[in-house]
C-alpha cells in the first residue's frame, strides 16, 4: 500500500470518522425536518374525548410510553406530565397537542393506515402485528382499541362508529 492509495493511514481514518459524524448530523436534521412537517390530524376535542382515554389506559403509563425518552412519548393524568403541578389532573391542552403530534410523527411514511406503527406495534404478531416490547395488546384488528386508533388516524375519530368503539375500549 502506498500512503496515497487505499491504505489505512490516520488520514483515512480521520476522514471516515468525519464522514460518519457528518452523516449523523444529516440524519438528525432529517428527523427534525420530518417532525416539523407533521400536521396534527383531527380535532383535539375528539382526541381528548375518545382517544386519550384509550392511550392513558393502555399505553401512557410511566413505565411505558410515559417515559420521556421513549418513542411515542405520551402524557396522561397519572403518567408523564409537562409540569409536576399537573399531577392528578386531566391532560392539559398542551399535553393533548403533544400526544397528537407524537402519534402523527411516529410513522409519517406509513404506506397505509394499517401499516402505521401505532396500529402494528400493539397488534399481536400472529394477527400481522410487529414485535412490541410491551407485548401483544390486541389479539386482532377487531379489538376496540385497534378500531379506535384506526378511526383516529382515518378521520380524527369523527364518525359515530369510531367514537363508539373508543368508548368501548376505555369505558
Amino acid at each position: 500500500m502506498t500512503p496515497g492509495g487505499r491504505g489505512r493511514g490516520p488520514g483515512r481514518g480521520l476522514a471516515v470518522v468525519l464522514a460518519a459524524l457528518a452523516a449523523a448530523g444529516v440524519g438528525c436534521a432529517f428527523e427534525d425536518q420530518k417532525q416539523l412537517q407533521v400536521a396534527a390530524r383531527g380535532e383535539q376535542g375528539n382526541f381528548a374525548t375518545y382517544v386519550q382515554p384509550v392511550l392513558a389506559t393502555s399505553c401512557a403509563s410511566l413505565d411505558c410510553h410515559g417515559m420521556a425518552g421513549r418513542p411515542l412519548r405520551l402524557y396522561a393524568k397519572h403518567g408523564l406530565r409537562m409540569d409536576a403541578v399537573l399531577r392528578g389532573q386531566e391532560a392539559s391542552e398542551a399535553e393533548l397537542s403533544a400526544n397528537i403530534a407524537s402519534i402523527a410523527a411516529l410513522d409519517p411514511d406509513a404506506s397505509s393506515l394499517e401499516d402505521n406503527l401505532l396500529l402494528l406495534k400493539p397488534l399481536a404478531v400472529k394477527a400481522g402485528g410487529m414485535h412490541h416490547v410491551g407485548g401483544d395488546l390486541w389479539a386482532n384488528q377487531a379489538d376496540p382499541a385497534y378500531r379506535c386508533l384506526h378511526a383516529w388516524l382515518r378521520a380524527g375519530a369523527s364518525d359515530a362508529i369510531g367514537q363508539a368503539v373508543c368508548k368501548e375500549a376505555a369505558p
Binding site: S61, L62, D63, M67, A68, L80, R81, D83, A84, R87
Partner: peptide, 13 residues
C-alpha cells in the same frame, strides 16, 4: 422505578 418519593417530578410519582 416510578414511585420515587421526594424526587417526584414530571415523569415520576
Amino acid at each position: 422505578g416510578c414511585h420515587v418519593g421526594s424526587q417526584t417530578g414530571t415523569d415520576h410519582v
